[in-house]
Amino acid sequence: MNTLISHIINPADVKAYALAGVLIALVVCLLALVIARILRNPFRYPYFELDFDVSGKRNVHIDNLVDEWLCTPGTWNQALDHHRQVEAWKKSSAAKAEGSLGPLAKRRRRQLAETIDDEREFCFITVRDQTRYHQRNYQRTPYKVSVPDRKLDVDLAWLQERRDALSAIGFETTLRKYYAKNQRRLMTPALRQQIAERDNYTCQICGKYMPDGVGLHIDHIVPVSKGGKTVPSNLQVLCSKCNGSKSNR
């Protein structure tokens, strides 16, 4: 009986069939990979991404950081350059979609339309350093990683509107600070030093020179009580005597 079965099912044939099955499976897998590669979306939208390190800071407003970035010379050209790159990418991607063969062109056009994300072209992200540890041989070694905190996605029109508003106030401060109710809180030591150096430590009324800073006051030209802002153009160096006589006039 066994001899009869061995004649009917040849072991060599079984091995051949098994090998053929493996080869067929490999071919099917390769074809599936090729088809998946052809059908997948080849387009990647070129976002503009900018990180702000806010480690150790509290009450951070991301729109305030964006305003500071817009007030920095040269940054607007960066935004415009990136927008031109996006437009060039859309043009070349459209040509690539139209150049696809047969029904694939329709799929590529749909994939491109789904990929274009102009409303979130500019991505601003706050990041914070966090301390983590490596554990080895019962010893912990600290290391830091930057972890995303908040994100603001905007289009070019939003940035343009924001920049126009900053331009109207001379790019001297952020919009949040400009319209803050408590302007006196914005008088930082760094701003005081900036105005003192700008005015050469000299009273702008009587001309008294105060290089040691004694008796030197930083005055709001238009008083805060009358709507004056804490911005460099509305600040000046005065001596204590002139500042006292000026009062809130």
Rank of each mutant, 00 (worst) to 15 (best):
T141E: 03
K144I: 02
K57N: 07
N77T: 13
E68T: 14
R120E: 07
H61M: 00
K91W: 10
L235E: 11
P232H: 14
L166P: 09
M210C: 01
N2H: 09
I218C: 12
V34Y: 02
A18H: 15
T230H: 08
L26F: 12
N137T: 07
N64H: 14
V145H: 03
E161R: 15
E119G: 06
I35L: 04
R176S: 12
P73W: 14
V224T: 15
Y17N: 06
L238H: 01
G102P: 00
R109N: 12
Y209A: 00
Q160Y: 12
A180S: 15
K208G: 00
A196N: 02
F122H: 03
S240E: 08
Q160A: 14
G244C: 08
A18I: 15
R110W: 05
D164A: 14
A20F: 03
A165W: 09
L19K: 11
R176N: 04
G74F: 15
E119N: 06
K226L: 14
H217T: 11
F52W: 09
Y138P: 01
I5C: 10
H61D: 11
R37I: 01
D164V: 06
L112R: 12
W69A: 12
V60Y: 02
V86M: 09
L156W: 07
R58C: 04
T173L: 15
T188C: 09
V237G: 00
Y45C: 08
A97L: 10
N2C: 04
G56R: 08
L152D: 01
R136H: 04
Y138H: 10
S233K: 06
R109W: 10
R140Q: 09
L39M: 08
L159C: 06
E172W: 08
N248K: 03
I218H: 12
P42T: 07
T230R: 12
Y17I: 14
G227E: 13
E87N: 12
S146H: 01
L65D: 10
R176D: 08
R176Y: 11
T174E: 13
K151P: 00
I62C: 03
Y47M: 03
V214H: 08
T131E: 06
R84W: 05
G21C: 08
N243D: 06
A25Q: 08
L191E: 08
